[in-house]
Amino acid sequence: MSNQAAAPTSPEKKEFWRWQENTWVDESRDWRDAKILTCGIDVGSVSSQAVLVADGELYGYNSMRTGNNSPDSARNALQGVMDKCGMALEDIHFVVGTGYGRVNVPFAHKAITEIACHARGANYMGGNQVRTILDMGGQDCKAIHCDERGKVTNFLMNDKCAAGTGRGMEVISDLMQIPIGELGPRSFDVREEPEAVSSICVVFAKSEALALLKAGYTKNMVIAAYCQAMAERVVSLLERIGVEEGFFITGGIAKNPGVVKRIEKLLGIQALDTQIDSQIAGALGAALFGHTLMMKQGAAKAA
């Protein structure tokens, strides 16, 4: 007989930062009816998306976390959406890769920078009135101006510092032990708006957040302070190229109202709304570029 007590085990670690991966297909259409089927693959530093465009219209997408190598992330993202609609790679006429891992998409016919693709995608999602785009990516931030066709006229990017990026928000989510999807709404549940955390660096912002908790701030106040800091950070980036009416936000942070509302307040303009997942803008733009290139090739063959 054994009286030995079971060894203590640490509680299962929850991953609060883990955002919702999702797949969507337009059930009202059949891809087999499409004359031109193109695909955009955006392999970002944090997330990867595969978007299918049938005859120039969004048909389906898959958005998931980027793995430890770009080719597999691209394959997995595409497989997810192809499985959902019973498609094979051979059925797709043209594939465009974009994002950090764009040159490592083995089945891509062409690679295009994420700047051009986000502008094109935002033009589709927000309409041809979109002029200023803020892409808050996983580990970088981009401010883009485009014309009525979605062609880039001015851009700047900051990929040296993680402040104002999705990764920064993931760090705060884990620190506060609050699911990342709840951060935005909870940031408004404060009696008064706290000062923004003063550190722009994600590492120091984390230390500062801990210090604020020790000083008696509630979790919601710390989240509000961080959302405000993030908003101030990206607004300073936007102000460098100027903000025109027709403002659109892409990337995962566009789903966080705590940051979006604060950006709108600082800029004094409202971001355009869309029913499409803001995270797929880059891959959608890539697929639309593919469609245009196919059309040009078709026109060239016909001539």
Partner: peptide, 16 residues
């Protein structure tokens, strides 16, 4: 198109 290459960090803005 105006292409801005560079970054902003704690010490300032450095764009070409």
């Amino acid at each position: 198109m105006i292409a801005n290459y560079g970054y902003k960090d704690g010490s300032g803005e450095y764009y070409i």
